[in-house]
Computed example of a mutant assay.
Amino acid sequence: MSGLVVVGADGSASSLAAVGTAAREAALRGAGLRVVHAFLWPAMHVPLGPSGLGPPEGGLRHAAQRVVAEAVERARSAAPEVDVTHAVMTGEPLTVLEAQSRAAELVVVGSRGMGGFVGLMLGSTAVHLAAHGQCPVMVVREQPAAGGPVLLGVDGSPAGADAVDFAFAEAALRGAGLLALHAWTPWHTPVPPPQDPAMPYASEPGELARTEERLVAEAIAGRRETHPGVEVRTKAVRGGTRETLIEASRTAQLLVVGARGRGGFTGLVLGSVSQALLHHAHCPVAVVRGSAAAR
Rank of each mutant, 00 (worst) to 15 (best):
H86N: 13
A87C: 15
V88A: 07
M89V: 13
M89K: 12
M89E: 15
M89R: 08
T90G: 14
G91E: 12
G91D: 08
P93K: 04
P93D: 01
P93G: 04
L94F: 10
T95H: 14
T95D: 15
V96A: 07
L97Q: 03
L97H: 03
E98A: 04
E98C: 13
A99P: 08
Q100A: 11
R102T: 04
A103V: 14
A103T: 12
A104F: 13
E105C: 03
E105I: 00
L106E: 07
L106K: 05
V107C: 03
V107I: 06
V107K: 09
V109S: 03
G110Q: 05
G110L: 06
G110S: 05
S111A: 13
R112N: 01
G113Y: 04
G113F: 11
M114Y: 07
M114T: 15
M114I: 14
G115P: 09
G116S: 13
G116F: 03
F117G: 00
L120R: 00
G123M: 06
S124M: 12
S124F: 15
T125C: 13
A126L: 14
A126C: 13
A126T: 13
V127L: 15
H128D: 08
H128T: 15
L129T: 04
L129A: 06
A130K: 01
A130M: 11
A130Y: 05
H132S: 13
G133P: 12
P136R: 00
P136S: 07
V137T: 01
V137E: 03
V137S: 09
M138E: 09
M138G: 03
M138P: 05
M138W: 12
V140K: 00
V140N: 10
V140H: 10
V140Q: 09
R141I: 04
R141Y: 08
E142Y: 00
Q143W: 00
P144Y: 02
A145L: 06
A146W: 07
A146F: 06
A146P: 14
A146C: 15
G147S: 02
G147D: 11
G148K: 04
P149I: 02
V150T: 14
L151H: 02
L151F: 14
L152E: 02
G153F: 08
G153V: 03
V154M: 02
D155L: 06
D155M: 01
D155E: 09
G156T: 07
G156S: 13
S157E: 08
S157A: 15
S157P: 11
P158T: 14
A159M: 09
A159P: 13
G160N: 09
A161R: 06
D162A: 08
A163V: 01
A163F: 02
V164G: 02
V164I: 07
V164C: 06
D165N: 10
F166Y: 14
F166K: 06
A167C: 12
A169S: 00
E170D: 05
E170M: 02
A171F: 08
A171S: 06
A171C: 02
A172F: 09
A172G: 02
L173S: 02
R174E: 01
R174A: 05
R174G: 02
G175S: 08
A176Q: 00
G177M: 02
G177I: 00
G177A: 10
L178F: 06
L178E: 05
L179E: 01
L179R: 15
A180F: 12
A180C: 08
A180I: 09
A180K: 10
A183V: 11
A183Q: 11
A183D: 14
W184I: 08
T185I: 05
T185H: 06
W187Y: 12
H188S: 11
H188G: 07
